[in-house]
């Protein structure tokens, strides 16, 4: 089953050890970015090179892997990364959130509450939450060291001034463990509350930027906001057209060129479970 031409999970053991060391540091300092020597991976930057290296380093033969792209298990990136690990590590793969021990993701945290022992691996395009505000990386590091996050607050002020209500729909910065400002990677603000006191371990890998950071289980994660404009997770005010859920995060799908559109769950596994439950009830 496993391709004999590759080491288990593709990466060589020395690289995995290096990444695991970075992971341990990252877990010890929640929200702090740890540099690591990211390798070339057999997929382009922006497709999840950081996430795939983290997954490769923590994967064991008994793990069950789920890969999500935009909440879905059946999109190109999700399918190809899942097949990749099935081929080079021979591990069990699944689309069921409940069965997975490791979930590599881009853009979403599953709707089903995570449990202890599960590990989320995020693919991060830009780990630095201050990068649009302060172009000098040396200066952003200094600001992190000093805990000076007024810039991020200014950005938030600008969003509210321009768009009325708390602006960023995704990648809304969070304070981790009351110390470090962290980019939650491009997950929608809707998913930010799921990071707070989560029983699962959250690992973030940025391949191009060569950074790893983490949120250990049961850690405080607070979205940045103002006292009089508290952070509010946004969701389209509709019910899912497929399963009828009114609580899950929805994708808007344009169905024709005359303004027709429908809303369906972005989490395909959650939607399928809901539909099964509905059928069983009928």
């Amino acid at each position: 089953m496993t391709d004999p031409g590759y080491n288990f999970a593709y990466l060589d053991e020395a690289t995995k050890r290096m990444i695991r060391r970075a992971l341990l540091k990252a877990i010890a300092i929640p929200g702090h970015q740890i540099p690591f020597g990211a390798r070339e991976m057999p997929l382009p930057y922006g497709w999840g090179t950081g996430g795939i290296q983290v997954t490769a380093s923590i994967l064991g033969p008994d793990d069950t892997l789920k890969v999500i792209d935009q909440g879905a298990d059946d999109t190109t990136n999700a399918v190809s990364i899942r097949r990749f690990f099935h081929r080079v590590a021979g591990v069990q793969v699944t689309t069921r959130t409940a069965e997975a021990t490791i979930i590599q993701t881009r853009h979403r945290i599953p709707e089903r509450p995570l449990t202890e022992g599960q590990v989320m691996v995020f693919q991060v395009p830009m780990p630095e939450p201050l990068f649009k505000l302060e172009p000098r990386l040396a200066e952003t590091r200094r600001l992190h060291a000093l805990g000076d996050y007024s810039l991020a607050q200014v950005k938030l002020y600008e969003d509210i001034a321009r768009q009325g209500e708390g602006g960023s729909a995704y990648s809304h910065p969070v304070m981790v463990n009351h110390r470090y400002l962290m980019s939650p990677s491009p997950i929608p603000g809707f998913d930010n509350p799921k990071l707070h006191m989560s029983p699962a371990l959250m690992l973030f890998g940025a391949g191009r930027e060569k950074k790893i950071y983490a949120v250990p289980p049961y850690t405080s994660v607070v979205s940045l906001d103002f006292d009089d404009h508290p952070f509010r997770p946004v969701r389209a005010p509709h019910a899912c057209a497929a399963c009828g859920s009114t609580t899950s995060y929805l994708d808007e799908i344009v169905t024709d060129d005359r303004g027709g559109r429908m809303f369906v769950c972005s989490d395909t596994d959650h939607c399928a479970e809901n539909q099964m439950a509905r059928k069983a009830a009928e």
Binding site: S150, L151, Q153, V154, Y157, I160, F226, D227
Partner: peptide
């Protein structure tokens, strides 16, 4: 103008 207030801990938008 608000940046310095926010740097000084101002967290009330209004």
């Amino acid at each position: 103008i608000g940046e310095r207030l926010m740097a000084a801990g101002g967290r009330h938008y209004g």
